Amino acid sequence: MISVFGSANMDLVAYTGRAPALGETVTGHAFRTIPGGKGANQAVAAARAGARTAFIGAVGDDALGPQIRAALADAGVDVSRLRTVPGPSGIAHIVVEDSGGNSIIVIPGANGTVTGPAEDDVAVIRRSAALLLQLELPMDAVVAAARAARASGRERPAVVLTPAPARELPAELLQAVDLIVPNEHEAAAITGETDPEKALAALLATVPEAVVTLGGEGALYGSRGSAPVHVPAFKVEATDTTAAGDTFAGALAVARTEGMPPERALRFASAAAALSVQREGASTSMPTRSEIDAFLTVSGGNP
């Protein structure tokens, strides 16, 4: 089982030819409300990629909370540890350009009330093969979840961190992380290195394994004591890149818990991300296991 401790939002998505500059108004051509949030997205991605998945987080007692909960449940995610708290649910305002690029403003709402895993949450984490973390919850809560995973004993879950939004990472968090998965911009912000290979090397000074995603250029994997591995991206026409990174992280966690070696796991995650960017939305864009397997079969497993 994979557990995800993270954020759950409702995405308010505007589609337009180009995003407005400061003070400018542009006309869009579509608007959608889509359940999202980096934590919820990764949970949906993992569940659709074939893993039994549990989500730990919070939604508000507003009209959006039940919609977010239902979307997770419909994707096959266990929402028994998704609690409802007074106040609004988390919101993300997203502008998607016709090129597929996006800009996002996140308003935490209920996510900001999460202070750490409750006792029952810890029990779920300790039964998991992997724990997925991101940084849209308060940092103290993320550290507490990582601490709970690390205290699980010999068979503790692998802790996979997506350090987004990028910020300074506490030493206690890094000490508990087994695999960190930033994109190239997050890796640069964390390490101060703009060259992805140098950033990867800097990350490996603090964690055992790292993957730096490079968008259309693929992904770079490294572990301590081994040479970096670059896996190119599958060449597809992007419609909407929202949550491509979350799709990649969720699918990568599934691949690793199934025992796939790193290069094969990266191809599996890259295939999932390639499928997602061809569709609109965050959680709505994420492929099923059968779709990922079919895509890899048609491509021969190679980008």
Results as ranks from 00 to 15, higher is better:
residue 159 V to N: 04
residue 50 G to L: 13
residue 156 R to A: 13
residue 69 R to G: 07
residue 224 R to K: 13
residue 5 F to A: 09
residue 62 D to W: 14
residue 95 V to L: 15
residue 79 V to M: 08
residue 289 R to C: 09
residue 147 R to Q: 14
residue 192 G to I: 04
residue 73 A to Y: 08
residue 223 S to E: 15
residue 161 L to N: 02
residue 3 S to R: 08
residue 256 R to Q: 05
residue 170 P to A: 03
residue 293 D to R: 13
residue 182 P to D: 03
residue 117 P to W: 04
residue 171 A to D: 15
residue 56 I to S: 03
residue 265 A to W: 01
residue 1 M to C: 11
residue 140 D to S: 12
residue 212 V to W: 04
residue 80 S to W: 08
residue 78 D to L: 01
residue 39 G to A: 07
residue 173 L to C: 03
residue 138 P to E: 05
residue 85 V to R: 10
residue 52 R to T: 08
residue 5 F to H: 07
residue 48 R to Y: 06
residue 130 A to C: 12
residue 64 L to E: 15
residue 148 A to E: 05
residue 56 I to F: 06
residue 280 E to T: 13
residue 302 N to D: 14
residue 245 G to I: 04
residue 192 G to A: 00
residue 289 R to W: 12
residue 12 L to N: 10
residue 215 G to M: 01
residue 156 R to I: 10
residue 186 E to C: 03
residue 216 G to C: 04
residue 279 R to V: 15
residue 140 D to C: 04
residue 194 T to E: 13
residue 18 R to A: 09
residue 223 S to G: 08
residue 259 G to L: 07
residue 298 V to K: 13
residue 83 R to H: 12
residue 5 F to R: 06
residue 281 G to W: 10
residue 156 R to Q: 09
residue 116 G to M: 03
residue 111 N to G: 08
residue 283 S to P: 06
residue 155 E to S: 14
residue 43 A to M: 11
residue 64 L to A: 14
residue 242 T to V: 15
residue 163 P to E: 10
residue 234 F to D: 12
residue 226 S to E: 14
residue 34 I to T: 02
residue 29 H to G: 13
residue 214 L to Q: 03
residue 244 A to K: 03
residue 226 S to M: 09
residue 13 V to L: 11
residue 249 A to C: 15
residue 80 S to K: 11
residue 181 V to Q: 03
residue 300 G to I: 11
residue 92 A to G: 09
residue 41 N to L: 04
residue 300 G to F: 11
residue 139 M to D: 10
residue 262 P to D: 12
residue 260 M to D: 14
residue 101 G to M: 12
residue 146 A to R: 05
residue 74 D to K: 13
residue 48 R to G: 08
residue 7 S to I: 06
residue 290 S to I: 13
residue 118 A to W: 12
residue 243 A to F: 06
residue 1 M to K: 02
residue 159 V to D: 05
residue 256 R to G: 06
residue 173 L to D: 00
residue 275 L to R: 14
residue 66 P to F: 09
residue 115 T to W: 00
residue 42 Q to L: 08
residue 58 A to T: 10
residue 285 S to C: 09
residue 303 P to T: 13
residue 265 A to P: 01
residue 167 R to I: 06
residue 275 L to F: 12
residue 145 A to M: 00
residue 3 S to D: 10
residue 282 A to K: 03
residue 22 L to P: 06
residue 217 E to G: 04
residue 116 G to T: 04
residue 108 P to Y: 10
residue 181 V to T: 14
residue 67 Q to P: 04
residue 194 T to L: 07
residue 262 P to W: 00
residue 256 R to L: 14
residue 267 R to N: 09
residue 13 V to E: 02
residue 254 V to I: 11
residue 201 A to S: 05
residue 123 A to G: 11
residue 99 S to L: 00
residue 53 T to S: 03
residue 69 R to V: 08
residue 102 N to G: 10
residue 294 A to E: 15
residue 281 G to Y: 14
residue 93 H to L: 15
